[in-house]
Structures are given as C-alpha cells and as structure tokens.
C-alpha cells in the first residue's frame, strides 16, 4: 500500500513548476486523496474488529479473564499502561513532525539577536526529523514487545477471532508506521546530504500529513481497541 503513497508523493521530480489549475501542488492533492482512501481501509479493519468483538469462542480475551478446559487461567491480555506509554510516544512524534515542518519553513529566516536554544532548535529540521523517526521507531518497539508478550501469553493470529482481528488491525497500523519511519529516514538523509530548505517544504509537508494520519488512526485504535470494553 505504502508503495504508491510514496510514488504519488514524490513523482514529478522537483525541477519544473508547471501551471496547475488550483495553484496547489499535484503531490499534495494526491496525498490527501490517498489519506481519504486510507480512511476506508482502516474503517474496514476497525469495523471488522468491532464486529468480532466478544464473539471469540476461546480466550485469551482483551478485557476479561478466561479459563480453558484444562483449567488454565488467562489474564485479560491488554496491557493498558504499556500501551498508554506507546500512545504518548506516538503523540509526541506528531508534535516533533510539525516542528520539523516548521523548521524547514523558517530555517532561512535570520536568527534574532540573542536567540535562545529553543529559537535555534526550532530551526533545526534534522533534529526534529530525527526525533520524529526515533519516536516512531520506539513506538514500533513497544508494539514488537506487546506482540511478543501476547504470543507468550498464548494469543497468536490463529488463536481466536480476537487474535486474528487484533493483530491484523494493529499490524496494519504498525506497517504504516514502519513505512513512515522509512520515509522520514529518507528525508533525514536528504537533509543531511543536501539540506532541506523552504523550497522543500512540500516534500516534508506530505510526509507530515501521512505521519499525522497514522497518528490519528492510532488515536482511534487506542480508544476502540484498548479502552472500550
């Protein structure tokens, strides 16, 4: 899926500026259309999760205890504290992302006299891109930890409807985050090799739109999957 996101996002090079009807860049229109499409993608996944909620025949279950025929006890499997932390990480990465975009927009402006570290930091797109990508990677580590822990507790994609829908939904999201981290890393690499300036606002902007979208999807998933019982 992400293959053509990136394709749509970056096609047409950076050289020629053609006339466009709306005065907007093609790539930005394409990314918004893509995000619209992603809404339906995640709607299908979320709807499936909710449809199968409470219909698993055997445990483990997300919020309730389960005792199998052998008398084995499975605790409610969702780990809210850990996931709250990872949710916070992803939220913060979104903040860093807007700061990265802002940095690209304002880095050419002259620094006022006696600018403090914050003012200087605000102009460092490398810093914020790095932070965003890293926090994305940390989120993925949380997810890897969560998945491994679940497997150890006896929940795999094959166990029950909850396992199948949970891993697929959060896995799809995780795949989006992974693509995003790769994308941001590429931007960081460009920034380090040739430096991103105001003329590159657009390529950072579309990456940011994608990243924030991945974040808002997690906002929905966190509530619907983890908190609601």
């Amino acid at each position: 899926m992400s293959a053509h996101t990136t394709a749509a996002g970056h096609d047409d090079g950076h050289v020629h500026h053609h006339y466009t009807t709306t005065g907007l860049d093609n790539r930005k229109i394409a990314i918004w259309a893509f995000i619209g499409s992603e809404c339906m993608l995640f709607a299908s996944l979320i709807a499936t999760y909710l449809i199968y909620k409470g219909r698993s025949i055997v445990g483990p279950f997300p919020h309730t205890e389960y005792v199998n025929e052998a008398g084995q006890i499975f605790k409610p499997i969702l780990d809210i504290p850990v996931t709250s932390a990872s949710t916070f990480v992803l939220l913060m990465s979104s903040l860093f992302m807007v700061l990265a975009l802002q940095a690209v927009q304002i880095k050419h402006l002259p620094l006022p006299d006696g600018a403090g570290w914050w003012t200087r930091a605000q102009r460092s797109s490398q810093l914020w891109l790095f932070m965003t990508a890293s926090f994305g990677a940390i989120f993925l580590m949380f997810q890897a930890y969560e998945f491994t822990a679940f497997v150890h507790e006896g929940l795999t994609v094959k166990t029950n409807l909850f396992g199948s829908t949970f891993f697929t939904l959060t896995g799809f999201h995780g795949a989006h985050v992974t693509a995003g981290v790769l994308w941001l890393t590429s931007l960081l690499w460009i920034d380090r090799t040739r430096g991103l300036g105001p003329q590159d606002e657009l390529i950072v902007d579309i990456a940011a739109l994608y990243w924030h979208f991945v974040d808002v999807i997690w906002i929905v998933i966190f509530t619907l999957v983890y908190l609601i019982q």
Binding site: M1, S44, Y52, S56, I57, N160, L161, G163, S164, F167
Partner: peptide
C-alpha cells in the same frame, strides 16, 4: 480499500491460519 481488506483477511486465513472466515472459530 474494503475489498483489499476482505482479500487480505482471506489471504491471511489461507496462508497464515487466521480465523476471519473459519467456521470452527465462530466466524
């Protein structure tokens, strides 16, 4: 997107043993 997801579920069921359409799992 909905058919992509429906097909993805079927793909997972067929190749990786998930239970989206598995009768025994109550699908």
């Amino acid at each position: 997107p909905p058919i992509t997801i429906a097909l993805f579920f079927l793909l997972m069921d067929r190749f990786f043993g998930t239970t989206f359409y598995a009768i025994a799992a109550g699908a």
